[in-house]
Amino acid sequence: MPLVLAGPISDHAYFSERIEPQLGDSVRYLGHLVTEYLVAAVGMSAVALVAPQWDEPYGLVVAEALACGTPVVAHGRGGIPESSRRIAVGWSQPTTWPRCPSRSVRRNSWLGPHARARAVNHCSERGMVNRYV
């Protein structure tokens, strides 16, 4: 599967040395996209791979991808396993990440159009307020 990256570059030296040399036909970098283009890119993706390098407190990217109708495979780091139990399709411990995505992508790509409904039901303002109440 081709890999498409999007987002800001916070460490230009790292990007130039480690990421840029790997770009080509199977790995593309779209840049730091405005919301409209990011939603379109995520919405057209087969799956969103979410691999935070820190203890993500909630997993907003997971909810945003699902709201675009895109299945998710995520690192089980920080709050992602807990927040994602109800919404994400697959997640792995960071130590198993190199072996997990391809199996998880194939196994979980069936979600498709159901992803948006799951995200709306579990992550919308109304859904979250109802559960808090």
Rank of each mutant, 00 (worst) to 15 (best):
P98N: 03
R116H: 02
G76D: 05
N108T: 11
R106M: 10
W91Q: 07
W91T: 07
C123D: 06
H75N: 13
V27A: 11
Q22H: 14
R103I: 14
P71W: 03
A88L: 01
R85I: 12
C123L: 05
L49Y: 01
V129W: 06
T35W: 15
V72F: 03
E17M: 09
Q93K: 15
E20M: 09
Y14I: 10
E56G: 05
A74E: 00
R131A: 09
L23K: 10
W97D: 02
W110D: 15
H75R: 11
G24S: 04
Q22R: 15
L66W: 00
H122K: 09
I80R: 01
L3T: 12
A119E: 00
E17N: 09
Y37K: 15
V42W: 05
E125W: 15
R99Y: 12
H75Y: 15
Y58C: 06
I80S: 03
V39M: 10
H75K: 09
G112K: 12
N108A: 10
D25G: 15
L5A: 08
T96L: 13
I9K: 04
P113W: 06
E20P: 03
L111T: 07
S45M: 08
V129K: 10
R77P: 01
P52I: 04
C100I: 12
G76Q: 05
R28Y: 10
Q22C: 14
D55Y: 08
I9A: 08
V73P: 01
S92C: 14
D55M: 11
W110M: 12
Y58W: 09
V72H: 01
V73Y: 01
P94R: 03
V4K: 12
P94E: 01
A40N: 14
V120G: 00
P98Q: 05
S16P: 08
R107P: 03
G79F: 02
D25E: 15
N108E: 11
L33P: 09
H75A: 13
G31Y: 04
A88R: 00
G7T: 08
R99K: 14
A88V: 02
G112L: 14
S104H: 12
R86Q: 13
P71T: 05
D25V: 12
Q53H: 13
E17L: 10
S26Y: 13
A115L: 03
E36V: 12
L38A: 12
L111M: 10
L23T: 06
E56L: 06
S16F: 08
R106H: 11
H114Y: 10
G59C: 05
A65P: 02
V42F: 06
S124G: 01
A51S: 14
G112S: 13
Y14K: 09
S109H: 14
V34L: 10
R28L: 11
R131E: 10
M128N: 03
R118Y: 02
R116T: 02
L38T: 10
R99W: 12
W110H: 15
I9F: 09
S10T: 15
G7C: 07
E64F: 05
I80D: 02
R77K: 08
L30N: 08
A65T: 01
H75M: 11
S16W: 07
G24Y: 04
